[in-house]
């Protein structure tokens, strides 16, 4: 006897389970009036240094928490802990990105009633983190100029999904062949809404624009009480 296969039309978003958890996370953060930014870049672009400097610049005015995502090690969390901010390390054990569930798992380790801003440092990677929502308000991307000016066209989804692009290590410009105008032009082509700041996380160039953007967003979130 011939067995006839049954066809099941589904049309279902594959990442629906993650999107649902992200929506729950978002509701939780909104309820606590905590602004959440998801910081993404390739490894070594300067996320941890930028986050440390951001905390130091904002900590007198705002209460800040950090979730550190890495495949292994607690190196970054230790560095952030020196700023005095609340910090939790997630080790993904191989996964190349953070997702909604991993963020949810930290909820009992952070005091959200004592927090205005949660900074999530994603796993260093220009591909996978762009695919997975976690309940953040904004995605912020770092691109350091030694990585090259061809990145917007090579990793368009990351640029398309981000609200802010920080062009980092701008102090290295005299030593590096990198066309910053090309980065800006092509990023804006992929995402006309993206805000672009040229910064040096190390020596502080341009960071005020980033701090001001962030402060404004924190205040807006607080005012929505």
């Amino acid at each position: 006897m011939e067995v006839i296969a049954i066809k099941v039309p589904l049309v279902k978003n594959i990442l629906e389970a993650n999107d649902k958890i992200s929506d729950l996370n978002k509701r939780f953060f909104d309820d606590k009036n905590v602004l959440v930014v998801n910081i993404m870049s390739s490894p070594g672009a300067g996320k941890t240094t930028l986050i440390s400097n951001t905390i130091n610049a904002l900590k007198d005015e705002f209460k800040i928490g950090v979730i550190e995502g890495d495949i292994q090690s607690t190196y970054d969390a230790e560095k952030i802990a020196e700023t005095g901010a609340q910090v939790v390390q997630i080790n993904t054990g191989g996964a190349c990105h953070l997702d909604g569930n991993m963020i949810r798992d930290t909820f009992d380790q952070l005091d959200f009633d004592n927090m205005d801003l949660l900074i999530v440092e994603n796993v260093g990677n220009l591909v996978c983190p762009a695919e997975f929502q976690m309940g953040e308000d904004f995605k912020v991307m770092l691109l350091s100029i030694p990585e090259g000016d061809d990145k917007p066209l090579k990793y368009p989804l990351m640029f398309h999904e981000s609200s802010v692009l920080l062009v980092n290590k701008i102090d290295l410009l005299p030593y590096i062949e990198c066309d910053v105008d090309k980065i800006k032009k092509e990023s804006l082509k992929i995402n006309p809404e993206i805000k672009i700041f040229e910064v040096s996380g190390k020596i502080g160039t341009g960071l005020d624009q980033w701090f001001n953007w962030l402060k404004e967003k924190i205040r807006q979130k607080n005012d929505s009480k």
Binding site: V3, I6, L10, V11, L15, K189
Partner: peptide, 20 residues
């Protein structure tokens, strides 16, 4: 005009499956 909205190309869906 330089500003273009993406309206398709971000799909990540199961269209259908078959079984017995």
């Amino acid at each position: 005009h330089p500003n273009i909205q993406i309206i398709a190309g971000k799909e990540l869906e199961i269209a259908e499956f078959e079984g017995t």
